[in-house]
Design a protein around this nucleic acid. Structure first.
Lengths: 343, 343
DNA sequence: TTGAAAGCGCTAACAA
DNA sequence: TTGTTAGCGCTTTCAA
């Protein structure tokens, strides 16, 4: 540890923050004039503008956003309640980017995948009077938001719909993604294809498992022991894998219903991964440097973020507009693992 | 797209937000009493408490945090200016976690690794009157923060120091990490070890390259063509790799100075990766499922986040305390790639 | 073009 | 225990 004494000039916590009134006094003008200069109101004489600006930098004046927001009513901030802040989150990045373009600040908070946290986080955003909320829903019930929504708060759900409350929603086309993955594997000669994915309690897990079952039915392949929705835990995934790959008619190909499952499967298979054709739903960083590299169904993260902001702004502009659900296409990215022939 | 007409009751944007005064009127009490109930002041008769609470839920009253903050002076919010919001950021997660434990909200904003953006973001935080700022510095000059710091804003730098301004700082022990990696490779029989890392313009790049040179000098190994600091771009990394692995006395082992370089190297080597011993600085998700899995020097992300919050709180509690720099240890995580023998 | 004064929604002295 | 009142720092009518 380095320790250095604070020097005389640099003593912290002394100077009181200057207010707009201080600036006005320093510049010898009225408060209103400073406000005008700060807000770049063109109706101020250039003479005064420079005097005010001089006073601002002399005092190191920084306007108080809270007061401004309180007075103006809007915050220029939108809340993003996302599943977590630790892992990669391209959609959050896209939300941030597009919000910035629209002149909005994003207040990102993590729900930690917990219902209670989601409520806390969203409530906290409401207290801060954000101009809108983008939410990756976790709760099984979003009634708690209904009063806010009715009083005009724009809310957009991303990745899954809200429950018990209508709101604009951005989804990925889960069914099409599963269909594409399935057909891709069939095209490469597979007849016995297994699926391991999220619990059907979860919206995407439900949609993907259902789509998978429909694909199997349509292609007349075997269903028995091939569909494994459930928790994304190593033991559960390994067990499902063993079921799918065991027995007299083992699967020769696998669709992993989410990135965590893909990773768990690859971790378990290790060097054997090259023997099983795999398509993973959701792309992830480094999927391309695995050997074999993982073929995935990729969501369009940039479009999801962009659309979420668009829906939010549209809702803000016209609160009476009917609720919309936008379903965005997904893409198959062939990288090797999904092109392996049946063993 | 789903479209449904808004129903009569659910028309959005109608109801005006109730204020504390509205609640007071509804409950037939004074404004101050509502404030007391909202803030859980115990000196309110239980009779009135329930009457106020009834009014609150009847009106769907949500207190306005902006007004409260304006009046109380503090925001209960700290800013986190991080390099980006898209990629995995375990330190941000840890910051968020520890801030929450301390009753603070984190306002995370992305600097996008751009100096100008850093300033924008930090300024925006100051206008919002955050109670402190944690910053992953990008700028080459942080003088612009000095007025804020002097007026008492706690600022903590993470991963690198600020320049031109003293502030509490949390660093990883770069030199020790390089030393550990180097000795690990020597222990596994390597004599010709190369280093490819960040540009020395960057603090960590500078520290790590310098430490590497010192290691080579101490062990009497060759330096020529073995040290490659520079931009983390595919072409540059590949060229550096070719230099290190070419010639009459090629390197048998490599230290990658950051995660991006590790990945770039692995991507380039592909199946040949198993022939070169590699230790990467900085761990990353999935480094363990590569084959061979990547041996890394891992930072203690949780401790970094925790320490950053601790320093921030300490600074807030005692603004006159001398500035501290905490250097946290790093760990070698052997996974296979760093234990390969010389080719 | 500039200034005086009201008030955004809340908390905190101070009274009652 | 409860109510009255004065601001927090700003924007915004309304006059000058």
């Amino acid at each position: 540890m380095t320790e250095r004494a604070a020097d005389g000039t640099g003593v912290r916590g002394r100077r009181k923050r200057p207010t707009m009134l201080d600036v006005a006094r320093e510049a010898g003008v009225a408060l209103r004039t400073v406000s005008r200069v700060v807000n770049e109101d063109p109706t101020v004489g250039s003479h005064l503008v420079s005097r005010v600006q001089a006073a601002i930098s002399a005092l190191d004046y920084v306007p108080d956003e809270r007061a401004r927001q309180l007075r103006r009513g809007v915050t220029g901030t939108i809340g993003a309640a996302v599943r977590n802040l630790t892992d990669a989150h391209p959609v959050l990045g896209a939300i941030d980017h597009n919000a910035r373009e629209a002149g909005l600040t994003v207040l990102a908070m993590s729900t930690e995948d917990e219902e209670a946290r989601e409520r806390e986080v969203v409530t906290s955003m409401c207290r801060r009077r954000v101009d809108g909320i983008i939410i990756e829903p976790i709760s099984s019930n979003h009634q708690y938001l209904s009063a806010e929504v009715e009083s005009g708060l724009p809310v957009v759900a991303v990745d899954r719909p809200l429950s018990g409350l209508e709101a604009d929603t951005v989804l990925s086309d889960n069914a099409a993604g599963i269909g594409t993955a399935f057909r891709h594997l069939v095209l490469h000669g597979h007849r016995r294809i297994a699926y391991i994915g999220d619990h059907e309690r979860i919206f995407t897990g439900r949609e993907r498992a259902a789509a998978f079952r429909a694909c199997v039915a349509a292609h007349g392949g075997p269903l028995d022991g091939m569909v494994h929705p459930g928790a994304v835990e190593p033991d559960r995934v390994v067990a499902a894998l063993q079921t799918a790959l065991g027995g007299p008619e083992p699967a020769t190909a696998l669709i992993a219903g989410n990135a965590a499952t893909s990773i768990e499967v690859l971790r378990h298979l290790g060097a054997e991964a090259g023997r099983l054709a795999i398509v993973g739903f959701d792309d992830f960083l480094l999927a391309d440097i695995l050997r074999p590299a993982l073929t995935v169904i990729a969501q369009d993260d940039a479009a999801i973020g962009r659309t979420a902001i668009e829906l939010l702004l549209a809702r803000g502009a016209d609160p009476t507009h009917p609720v919309r659900t936008v379903t965005l296409p997904v893409t198959l990215v062939p990288r090797g693992s999904g092109e392996l022939p049946p063993a």
